[in-house]
Design a binder for these strands. Structure first.
Lengths: 251, 251
DNA sequence: TATAGCTATCGAACAATTTCAAACATTGAC
DNA sequence: GTCAATGTTTGAAATTGTTCGATAGCTATA
């Protein structure tokens, strides 16, 4: 493979996954890690990516311009990536999974490598990410009314459609977790996510540590009813102990 | 093989593959690598390709234009635009409209200027076009299984969802119209479109003149049950007379 | 919180490999 | 034979891989 071809591939990967490690790239492109480092440094010098310890991520301004609808995307990219990778390990071949809206869950489906999955989502960004994933998944969109701000489909249509389905695993993101309450900014979105969880045999909530011990307006689910809280290492031991009373912590 | 012939072949390969190595070309064209290098340098001097270490790649401006070129050819074809504009005039304030998949219908929603509409579609490209339209429409997506090739959502989920709705006007595109049959390439897609029409008080089929008197594999609706065929001026008088037996022609 | 120890990552230096172009030899058409 | 195109040789340049000591980041322990 030509060098410029490799550089282009790297850029492509960074764009879709927001973050990559040196090892991942070295394995995928079948070159040594040193070569990848040199490539990343070159791309960094050309101001195409942001070089960080262990890998690279999208430039924050690229994140902003790419999708103007959310500034959330530009922060905590690495943390979200960690959480997403952890969540990937909980998915197995032939699963039918529900994936709610949220940037972390976009990363989840973008980084999935398990084969033979049925992915159901009510989020357009998540759908797009799954569509761009190299593996050829059975992809189902839950339609409904469109919320421009989050890119999610919600309302009675979405809810009714979800109620006709059953999932082996379900993942939702949150804006905050306070005590045993999962909270979000929008009532309708929370309701739809709640139904997605209800219809899932195993229920996971995905939240980097910045979401813990914070509360948003609408409570939409009880932490005691979910099977796992997927977060990253940044979680404070005190909080971990607190939440582990109610559910399993994956970090 | 003549030199000029070889140069042409190389250009062709670069165009289709974006990247090519010296070795690949040397083996394929059965000449020495040195000859290929000389060829590549010549093409580079003529500004036809970008020479890079180990091979060659498309000029960066060719890469940029390449994608949008295909789409522009598709989308901005004059005939489709005419048809789309004509269809726009059949939509009025406060309508609830169903819009099926198809490039002409993408143009339709992109050019809509009527206010206070509810737009329902099972096509992702149509949805995206409507989303980008400046007017703030009530936008509803019908979810379901995703067909990568056309960007449409189909199957039982989509069908059931459509069956719960009622539209004042419905628009579908076709691959071909033969006698009184609307035909399309995919059975499921046709079924879903058919239901969209069934649920519409006024039913329109949209087809530039190239679609008339052509047939695709699956028949999904009867022309005698639609209220209008929207086409452009290129239609042959003979065909117009033929189809006007079955429905109203808008051109 | 601070510290020590561990591991992964890093870049510099060097070696191995690949690619390059110049110079020259060869081929084939006229 | 002449000339243009092509092949071959060869040393230089570019790229990549490997080794290794330094450093960053994390974990466990006090």
């Amino acid at each position: 493979m030509l060098k410029s071809e490799r550089l282009k591939t790297i850029l492509q990967v960074v764009k879709t996954q927001k973050f990559v490690t040196v090892d991942e790239l070295a394995q995928a492109l079948k070159v040594s890690d040193m070569t990848i480092r040199r490539d990343l440094n070159e791309l960094h010098k050309a101001n195409k990516i942001l070089r960080i310890h262990g890998g690279a991520q999208l430039l924050s301004d690229q994140i902003r311009t790419e999708k103007s609808y959310q500034q959330k995307r530009e922060i905590h990219s690495k943390e979200k990536y960690e959480v997403a990778k952890r969540a990937c390990n909980l998915i197995h071949e032939n699963d039918s999974i529900y994936v709610g809206p949220g940037t972390t869950l976009e990363l989840l489906v973008a980084n999935l490598k398990v084969k033979h999955l049925r992915i159901v989502t009510n989020s357009l960004p998540v759908f797009e990410a799954a569509k761009d994933n190299m593996n050829d998944y059975d992809l189902i969109m839950v339609g409904g009314s469109y919320r421009r701000i989050s890119g999610a489909f919600v309302g009675a249509l979405a809810n009714n459609e979800l109620k006709t389905m059953s999932f082996s695993v379900g993942f939702v993101g949150v804006n905050g977790i306070k005590d045993t309450s999962l909270t979000t900014a929008n009532l309708e979105e929370g309701q739809t996510e709640g139904i997605g969880l209800d219809r899932s045999q195993i229920k996971f909530v995905v939240a980097d540590y910045t979401k813990l011990d914070h509360s948003d307006f609408h409570q939409f689910y009880d932490l005691r009813n979910v099977d796992g809280l997927i977060t990253n290492h940044g979680i404070e031991p005190e909080l971990e102990k607190h939440y582990s009373q109610f559910t399993t912590i994956y970090k």
